[in-house]
Every structure is written in structure tokens, then in C-alpha cells.
Design a protein around this nucleic acid. Structure first.
Lengths: 229, 229
DNA sequence: CCCGCTGACGTAACATCGATACGTGACCAA
DNA sequence: TTGGTCACGTATCGATGTTACGTCAGCGGG
């Protein structure tokens, strides 16, 4: 006989497949059909369609937290922090539909798993605080990091046509980290070079210089754009 | 006779009210009932429920862009940038349901309004670039700022119980800005171009860039020297 | 004045979906 | 065998998105 928890898992997997296929919504009928049971079993196991969705989100959080546990915990908490951000983005890209359910929920009954996940982040940040590199309390830093990280992830997921910068995640991550972590991250020389190139390009576009010809300026602007990234 | 566009507007307003009330979903029947028309008019005006939703989102973007136009454009582009971020957050808090529709869309047919809004941000950033305070290209900076800003807004909207820091928005804003904006060195405009060229030439001579070939850099340096005086 | 046409509207229906009442059969203890 | 409990499926209800069809106002021509 199929155990109740096993059936529950099979329905969750079926629901997850349907969600990934349709993108944002599923049908209880289709889920039951895929598993080969009637609809009442769904309502006995999950009580409600919202219950099924909540279970789906919880299942996603389970997988996410499990994944985070497998991340190596090194003796450099800041490096762990960076790895955690990157893993967050990777999870979002690999599971777009569930990620949206997890981190862009509708108003309504809240789930407790996000709190646990935020506490996990706070734990890493407390190790940073013990290392003496944190500028603010771990709780505040966790909110900033999580908010910015989900923003980047949702942006990449929802509008890949608008958010085309391959370094978007790394850039925002470094900026937010720099605002929370005191360890001075000096700008590499090529960064300053890029900034200067961007500035010069803007100035040239505003008012072209007279010492250079039109064609030369066109090529110059092209190179400056390349230098600016 | 009620004009067609006026009827359209009334239905949009009714839909917006219902959306704000229910939080995340509306019923075509309820919208038509509220306006006092049959359902076929909705399908004649919007073609589809998705069409109604898209029109709702477009309407939200219209209001948002109109609001941004009324923001004073001062001679300090960085201050304008900060005001724009704060206005974004304020709009999200004042219109949570529509904001979610606008900035956390489901997969599917994309709307063009977000692009226009991102271009508006890019415009302000180009003014920053002309002032010489931008470290990266306006397009890249716009992506970082918009992604982080929507992340903060969605976090505050979706989980106010988790994101309790009243300074969350300001903190993330300042961090992200710090990653895109350098210390401004205000020089008279006519001298800024030459000075920037000299600075870029010095940086290039100190450490050549990898994105340009040797011959290209030689010519670039020649032009930069010409620009510098 | 009457007739036919067009365009907009409402009524009523269909398909689908979430949710549930009820009957049926398996299994178990006495 | 009998009575009871539990899980399941069938059939159904109410609501919702969507559409076919009839109806009516307005209008130009005979």
C-alpha cells in the first residue's frame, strides 16, 4: 500500500512539474490525474489548494535549506557569505517558478520557513561579527542582503531582456556587502579606469571636442564604451 | 453616450479597487458588475482577462511615470537619483497590489512600459555621468539600482514582519549608490573634458586595458593627449 | 412611413476549476 | 459472519473565464 507521506510527496512532485510547465498556476484536477487519484485525496492531504501551494513552498524551502547546509563552512565567514549569495541566485535560476512562489508571495497567510532561512543568513553574519568585520548588527545586515539578493534574482527571472548585465549579481552583492562589512575592499585599478572612461564618454557626447575629427570621435567613443564595460 | 475610452477607464478603476481589496486576483464578473455592464464589453475592450491585467499594469506605469515627471529635476543629479529611489519605495507602499503586478510579473507576454521606466532612470544616470561621478555605464548602473530597489520594495510589501528595519531602504540605497557613484570632483565644464582625458591617459599608461589591442591603445593615447591639451 | 443594415449590448449558455456530499469496498476485531 | 472504521472514487455544486446568439437603437434609402 502506498504510504500517506509517500503519496503526499508524489503529489508535490507532480504539482512542481505542472508549476514549472505552466509558469505560475496549477490545477488540482491535473495534479490528481497525474498521480492517478481522485481530487478528495488532495483535499484530505492538503486541505485546500492554498494548502497545496503552501506545502509546495515549504518543500522548496526544505530543498533550499538542505542545499545551504551542504555549502562548505570555511573559516572565512565573508567568503561563506559571498558563496551563499551566489548559491541563492543559482537556486533562483534553476527553479524559477518555485522561487517566485517562495520569495514573491501574495498577501495572505505567511509561512514560517523564510524566517528560518533568514536566521541561517544571520548565523553566518554573526560569525562575521565575531571576526570583527561587521559594521551593523547581523539582523540588519541580513535584511539588507536578503532584500537586495531577492531583488536581483527576481529581476533576472522576470525580465531577462531588461537585466542583461552578466555581472549584475556580483556588482550588487559587492556593493551591499561593502555597506555592511568593514574590511576595506579597495577598488581595483581597472575599475577606476572604467569609471574615468565612462565620464569622458559622457562629456564627449554632451559637447564634442574640436581637436578631433568626427570619425575619430566615433571610434574613440566606441573604445571608451568598451573600457567602461 | 458613454465614450469607449471613458468606459475603459471606469473598468480599469473598478478593477484596481477590486485588486487592492482582494490583494492578488480579481473576477471579470465582479468588475463588470461594478461598472454596470455585461461581461462581453470587457472582452470587447480588453480581449481577455490577461488583457485587462496588462492594461491595469500599463495604467499603473502611466501613473508612476507621470509621478516621476513631477519630481523636480535639480542641478544635482545624484540628489535626483536618491529622490527617485525614495519615490519608488513610496509608490510601492502606497499601491502594494499594483506594484506587485508591475514589478513581480509572471512569466508570459512582456510589457514595454518597464523599459521606458528603466530609460528614465538611465537618463538621470547619464546626467550623473556628465557630472563625472559615475563609475560604470549608465545602463549598468540603472540595472543595479532598479534591481536592488524593487527587491527592497517587494521585501517590505511581502514580509513586513521579517523586514523590520526602518532604515532598510536608505541603507541599501546608499550601498548600491556607493558602488556606482564615486566622489565628485567638480570642475568647470570646459576643463573637465581635458582633465578627464589626462586622467584616463595616465591610468592607461599605468596599466593597459585588456579589452583593446596594442595598436588601438596607442592611437587612443594619442587622441587623449590631444584632448588634454 | 416603412424596410433593411450596422453596431453595441445583454442573456444565456458552455467549459473548466475548486470544493464537497455520498456511496462503495477493503480491512479488521469480535 | 457481522458490524464498524477508514480510504477512495463518482457525481455534483458553485464560481469563473469565455463565447454564441438574440435584441434593440440609430440611420440611410425606397
Amino acid at each position: 500500500m502506498t504510504n500517506s507521506t509517500e503519496l503526499r510527496l508524489r503529489m508535490l512532485q507532480a504539482a512542481e512539474i505542472q508549476l514549472a510547465a505552466s509558469g505560475n498556476d496549477i490545477s488540482t484536477r491535473a495534479v490528481c490525474e497525474a498521480v492517478g487519484v481522485g481530487q478528495p485525496v488532495l483535499y484530505r492531504l492538503f486541505g485546500d489548494k492554498a494548502g497545496l501551494m503552501s506545502a509546495l513552498v515549504d518543500h522548496g524551502y526544505d530543498r533550499f535549506i538542505e542545499r545551504k547546509r551542504h555549502l562548505a563552512k570555511t573559516d572565512d565567514p565573508v567568503a561563506d557569505l559571498r558563496a551563499g549569495w551566489n548559491d541563492h541566485i543559482a537556486f533562483a535560476v534553476e527553479n524559477p517558478a518555485i522561487y517566485r512562489l517562495m520569495f514573491s508571495p501574495t498577501l495572505g497567510p505567511q509561512i514560517s520557513a523564510p524566517r528560518a532561512l533568514l536566521d541561517l543568513l544571520t548565523g553566518t553574519l554573526e560569525r562575521c561579527a565575531q571576526a570583527g568585520v561587521l559594521l551593523v548588527s547581523p539582523a540588519l545586515a541580513a535584511q539588507r542582503i536578503r532584500a537586495a539578493c531577492t531583488g536581483v534574482a527576481l529581476a533576472i527571472l522576470s525580465r531577462p531582456d531588461l537585466y542583461t548585465d552578466p555581472d549584475l549579481s556580483d556588482s550588487v552583492r559587492d556593493s551591499v556587502f561593502a555597506g555592511c562589512i568593514g574590511a576595506s575592499v579597495q577598488l581595483p585599478p581597472d575599475r577606476r579606469l572604467g569609471g574615468t572612461a565612462v565620464q569622458l564618454a559622457a562629456l564627449l557626447r554632451e559637447g564634442p571636442a574640436s581637436v578631433l575629427g568626427a570619425e575619430e570621435q566615433r571610434l574613440l567613443l566606441k573604445w571608451l564604451d568598451a573600457l567602461g564595460g
